[in-house]
Computed example of a mutant assay.
Amino acid sequence: MSSLPPERASRWLRRLLRLNAVVLMLAFPAVVLPDVWMNSAAITIGLGELSDTPLFNYLARTLSALYGMCGIATWILASDLPRYAPLVKLWGCSAIAAGVGFTMLDLIVGMPGVWAAIEGGYLLPTGAFVLWLDALRTRTNDPLVDVQAPLSESGS
């Protein structure tokens, strides 16, 4: 699949980023999720009862809002890959770093092993795949062609 043409790599990269954007935006409802529902969900997945303190509620809800906003930003990145190329690379590198960091943190704080494996097992390859697709998207055999330039600027 390393012979993937730049145009197809762009389409796949855009799709992958948009899929991630949607997943991230799914966190928005948790901002206003009733405490009882949030606690029930935590118990159901084996995390036990949640702390009913203002600090916990603040952190849980602001983190959900932050994930959702990252989803909006990711959607915007996918909308114009040439324009946001440096941020797409940052997104891929950040996903890899988060995969390593979150997995370590999950294990340190005592999250279930399956939680750590899913979180890191998702972020690491997704970040690597974003970087790989971005590299394929920007490669060309003709040094005079700037595949990052929008079509209107390249004269095509």
Rank of each mutant, 00 (worst) to 15 (best):
M69C: 15
S79E: 08
V23K: 01
L16F: 04
G92N: 05
Y67P: 00
D142K: 01
G127L: 02
I43V: 15
T44S: 10
G99M: 04
V100L: 13
P86N: 08
G48Y: 01
W91L: 14
L124N: 12
P34W: 10
V36L: 10
V130A: 02
A98T: 13
Y67D: 03
L50M: 15
V23R: 03
F28I: 14
N20V: 02
T138W: 00
M104H: 07
L144R: 14
V31N: 00
L136T: 10
L136Q: 13
N39V: 05
G68H: 07
V145M: 08
F28W: 14
F28T: 08
Y67W: 15
M38L: 10
V130H: 01
A41F: 12
W115R: 05
I45C: 10
D52K: 11
E119S: 10
I96N: 00
T53F: 03
S64G: 11
F129K: 06
D52L: 03
V31F: 15
S40W: 11
S94G: 15
L19F: 13
L47Y: 09
A30W: 13
V32Q: 04
P125N: 09
T74G: 00
L81H: 01
W132C: 06
P86V: 06
A98M: 09
F102Y: 12
Y84N: 07
A149L: 13
G121R: 06
R137F: 06
V145A: 00
D134T: 06
L17T: 01
G120S: 06
V32L: 14
V32I: 14
Y122D: 02
L77H: 01
L105Y: 15
D134Q: 13
W37P: 00
C70I: 11
L24V: 01
L123R: 12
